[in-house]
Amino acid sequence: MIESLKITLLLGFLTGILVVFGGIIGSIFKFGILGAFIGLIISIIMNFISYFYSDKLALRANHAQIVTEDEAPRLHRIVGELAQNAGIKKPRVAIVHTNDPNAFATGRNQDNAVVAATTGIMQTLDDRELRGVLAHELGHIKNHDILIGSIAATMAGIITMVANIGHYAIFFSDDDGIGELVASILLIIFAPIAAAIIRMAISRSCEFKADRSGAEISHDPLALASALEKIERGVEEHPIEDVNPSNAHLYIINPFGSTAQRLSELFSTHPNTNERIKRLIKMSEDGNY
């Protein structure tokens, strides 16, 4: 309940950023309050689109293709077994053709859920480790994280886009008001950062929960721990290409590698992998799964 309230407030803050940003841009171009109203309308539209079309948007953005049982028998078999363990409807299965070893889940609910795995992860992991990863993704579905992640990705993307619009808007403005100019510059700098921080905060808490849920579904926390170690090494060697950074938090490990993650934990889209592994090992030792 507390977590749901926290996420609701975070997404509300994202909407607030759009409204404020729209108001300042409206002021620059003499639209007045109309700018804030436009920002509100945009946020409503984006929430609507991300809710009803989150699975399609995520699949398209990440170049994932839905596959049949004949096309990917290994994935379908494992996902089917784990979905039965989790007591949820079997999600659709998709493949992303990239050497980056990774996986993600998307959709607004169990009826629209999709679990996607890269060709890289299928080559990197054995069946036991792959079960651990796919159980983690089913944990996201069971915990209702996939909708939150999709909305956060969509909203973060639109805020960044609006900030870029504001960047050019300043130079076309004939307003001599220094205050508004400074406010606009600050928003251009901090709006994308705020969106990123919110997205990352959501991702971190959800990843820890999905790790635990995945270990419970697979009954094998050490399988996921081993997989995370291999995935992180593989991502460093084969970072993903041609994917918008606003979708990074959807993946089980940051698909762009951990170099940026080491620069600042504050701006990391994922919790520290070593910490995740330690928690999974402790679960195994305690038998608490």
Results as ranks from 00 to 15, higher is better:
G157V: 06
R131H: 14
V67W: 13
H63Y: 12
H144I: 03
H97K: 15
P101H: 07
A83Q: 05
A117G: 06
N112M: 08
I151D: 00
T68S: 15
I158N: 02
I78Y: 11
H136Y: 07
R92L: 05
R60I: 08
L59I: 11
A103L: 01
I66C: 00
G80P: 01
A72C: 11
G157R: 11
T160L: 04
N99V: 00
H140D: 03
N62K: 05
G120Y: 06
V114N: 11
A152I: 05
D126W: 09
N112P: 00
G132E: 12
R60V: 06
R74N: 14
N99R: 07
A113S: 14
M122W: 04
L59S: 11
V96L: 04
A153N: 11
A64K: 07
A153M: 13
G107K: 06
I159V: 15
E129M: 14
G166A: 10
G87K: 09
R74I: 12
E81Q: 13
A94L: 09
R131A: 12
L138A: 01
A135P: 13
N112C: 02
I151A: 01
F104H: 12
V79N: 02
T124V: 07
H97N: 15
G87S: 05
V79L: 02
N99Q: 13
I66G: 01
H76S: 02
R128I: 03
M122Q: 15
G149T: 08
G157I: 05
T154L: 04
T106N: 00
L147M: 13
N62L: 09
V162E: 04
N102G: 07
V67D: 12
P91F: 03
G132V: 13
I88M: 03
G139S: 07
K89S: 08
A153T: 12
A113E: 06
R77T: 10
I121Q: 01
V114H: 11
L138N: 04
G120M: 06
H76N: 14
G132T: 14
N102V: 07
I88Q: 02
I159C: 03
A83I: 00
N85V: 02
